[in-house]
Design a protein around this nucleic acid. Sequence first.
DNA 1: GCCAACGTTGGC
DNA 2: GCCAACGTTGGC
Length: 157
Amino acid sequence: MTENISYWLMKSEPNVYSIKNLEKEKTTIWDGIRNYQARNFMRSMKIGDIAFFYHSNCKVPGIVGLMEVTKLNIVDPTQFDPKSKYFDSKSKKEFPRWDCVEVKYLGEYEKGLSLEDLKNLYKPNELQVVRKGNRLSIIPVSISTAEEMKITLGKFK
DNA sequence: GCCAACGTTGGC
DNA sequence: GCCAACGTTGGC
């Protein structure tokens, strides 16, 4: 029963929220997304979808782990919290602007794939994250690329 | 710290 | 609706 699964890549800065944080928490809501394209990708996710956990803005950026989408359409609470850096004064409770998904920890890879590895393996049209200047924090990954990457990534720790 | 590549905002 | 100015992301 894998025919309807979509694959994604989700970035997080490890000094903000790393794969170790997710390992401890087991699940998390992917809050703080303030980009419409990224939000819309989350809206098109389905339960059971698989996402690669990517560490960005760090010494060795790259894929470090794997997650599964477990809940959809969660209103992002940080948009209503004036103390949060993600507070959005224009978002109304009746019409929340930002929503997200919950994801579950599946594992951290023994080796992972650095951005440098990914650039050697894939062309920009095969994997958006290797495209120069790509700033989108949630991007779709094609089934063929994703399945190949899973094989290359190998075992969890 | 620099800067390329965007996305957003707001004046007109 | 255009576009300049500004802000942010994120690799390097």
